[in-house]
């Protein structure tokens, strides 16, 4: 059995060795172009199916809404009506007559402020509830009830308290996104393995070092789950809140378009709201991936 195998090896090896200087470059090239081809194939596999689905849906939409007397405009009409808004998102004619960029940026600023506050407060409260049994017993029932209150139900109360639209909208974002952050952080803290606590005890870390060196990194995957749910809820809440408080913002832009019967503008705005929400979600997910590298696979 062995002899023929060795023989074949020797036979193939000899010509390769002789030809080696001549063909030195050839073995390198095919893998490279193959790698490109593979990358292109992988991209195509991911990109083509959604594109096909989008094209099909647009076609169906076009066919359904094309007939005269249809309540909603077909995509071709949407594009024609909103061409100016799409091509120039940066115009500013004073008041609320601004390009979509300014509306989105106003909404995003509110979200940034409200969400940052809720991230800080949420992680702090979550650590408290996760670490202290008494804090959990006292606060958890309260959280469980408060978190079921719909975002918009807070708006009248916050308007009464702040007497202004801007802080009220920020408060609504804060109160909407804080609950998943608190709850996930608390679960993360409670699930810190006893091993890590033992290590900290043997090394004699003080409470502050324990917090920064053990607790936060160990709970980071949970915290980021909460943060990701929170950013999604913030974006849901801001659009609804802005419809009611008015002023510059993508929510009021939609409401204003409805009042002026500009259905095409509503559709365009919805498209942007979806894209921005998606980007925000990816942003937090990506940040979480960077921060928690190593931790998740322990």
């Amino acid at each position: 059995m062995n002899m023929p195998a060795t023989k074949i090896e020797v036979e193939t090896a000899t010509p390769a060795a002789v030809a080696a200087p001549v063909v030195a470059m050839t073995p390198r090239r095919p893998p490279r172009s193959e790698a490109y081809a593979r990358m292109a194939r992988e991209t195509a596999v991911r990109v083509i199916p959604p594109l096909v689905v989008i094209a099909l849906l647009t076609l169906i939409w076009e066919l359904v809404c094309r007939r005269a007397g249809s309540a909603l405009p077909p995509p071709s009409k949407v594009f024609k009506d909103t061409k100016e808004l799409i091509l120039d998102p940066f115009f500013d004619h004073g008041g609320i007559d601004k390009g979509l960029f300014w509306h989105l940026s106003a909404s995003l600023q509110r979200v940034a402020l409200g969400y940052s506050l809720s991230a800080i407060a949420g992680i702090a409260l979550g650590v408290l509830v996760g670490q202290s049994v008494w804090a959990m017993r006292g606060l958890d029932p309260l959280f469980q009830v408060l978190r079921t209150i719909p975002p918009l139900a807070w708006l009248p109360l916050s308007l009464a308290a702040f007497r202004d639209g801007q802080p009220s909208a920020i408060f609504v974002i804060f109160i909407t996104s804080i609950w998943p952050i608190i709850i996930n952080t608390a679960v993360g803290i409670r699930n810190i393995p006893q091993d890590y606590r033992n290590v900290a005890a043997v090394v004699q870390l003080n409470p502050l070092e324990f917090f920064s060196k053990i607790m936060i990194p160990a709970a980071a995957p949970y915290i980021f789950t909460g943060l990701r749910i929170g950013i999604g809820l913030s974006w849901l809440a801001i659009v609804a809140a802005e419809m009611l408080i008015g002023g510059v913002g993508i929510g009021f832009f939609i409401w204003d378009a409805w009042n002026s019967s500009h259905i095409s503008e509503i559709i365009l705005a919805l498209f942007y709201v979806g894209i921005v929400g998606f980007v925000l979600d990816r942003l937090i997910a990506g940040l979480g991936k960077i921060v928690t590298r190593g931790t998740a696979t322990s």
């Binding site: 160990a218 190593g294 322990s298």
Partner: peptide
């Protein structure tokens, strides 16, 4: 607990981050 009695834990207990 203290570092004068350092422990090598059964499951290594290294901090993964």
């Amino acid at each position: 607990p203290g570092p004068d009695r350092a422990v090598v834990f059964q499951n290594h207990s290294l901090l993964p981050w």
